[in-house]
């Protein structure tokens, strides 16, 4: 017990110990911001992997670690699309995942925001044209926000999400 407390005291607070990202490459559109306003200061995210190489997943997971701690901005991960305000989609949409993506989009209650995370989700990246890939996310469902990068750093993801929420999360 004392060991645990001692350790925690010695480590202190690590939240925020990362290099802050610059302004997002692709600005968030006013329409997406309008829609995000409905969710006030919180955002429940459902992550859907449609064929990524799992680097984007790792960076999404990193958002939840003590260093980035996205929860402090009201961003949390929902276990079901029915509980979600936003879908984060990673990877080019593969032939085998196409139907699952459409289903998940249908299951997410309106209003909703779709975020394409990573180059693959935006333009298929290196997998463009492959027989097993049906196209970028926006070919199947309407996309509101795009976060480029291969993969984007957690700080970059956080910067876009805060712009979407219309608040300054860089502090």
């Amino acid at each position: 017990m004392f060991r645990i407390i001692k350790k925690s005291l010695r480590i202190g607070v690590v939240t925020g110990r990362y290099q802050k990202a610059n302004k997002p490459e692709l600005p968030v559109t006013p329409e997406a911001q309008d829609r995000a306003r409905l969710f006030k200061r919180s955002l429940a995210i459902r992550e859907v992997d449609t064929g990524s190489c799992n680097a984007c997943e790792m960076e999404m997971n990193a958002l939840l670690n003590p260093v980035y701690d996205a929860d402090r901005f009201g961003i949390h991960i929902a276990a079901s699309p029915r509980h979600a305000d936003a879908l984060v989609v990673t990877g080019p949409v593969t032939v085998n995942m196409e139907r699952a993506l459409k289903d998940v989009h249908k299951q997410t209650s309106d209003p909703k925001i779709v975020i394409a995370l990573g180059d693959c989700a935006i333009n298929c990246g290196m997998f463009k044209g492959s027989y097993a890939v049906t196209g970028p996310v926006e070919r199947h469902i309407p996309v509101d926000v795009r976060i480029p990068g291969c993969p984007p750093r957690p700080a970059e993801i956080l910067a876009v999400l805060s712009e979407l929420q219309g608040k300054d999360n860089t502090a």
Partner: peptide, 11 residues
């Protein structure tokens, strides 16, 4: 499995 088959070997 193989939901995420992207055709890597063909690429």
């Amino acid at each position: 499995h193989f939901w995420k088959h992207r055709g890597v070997e063909k690429l």
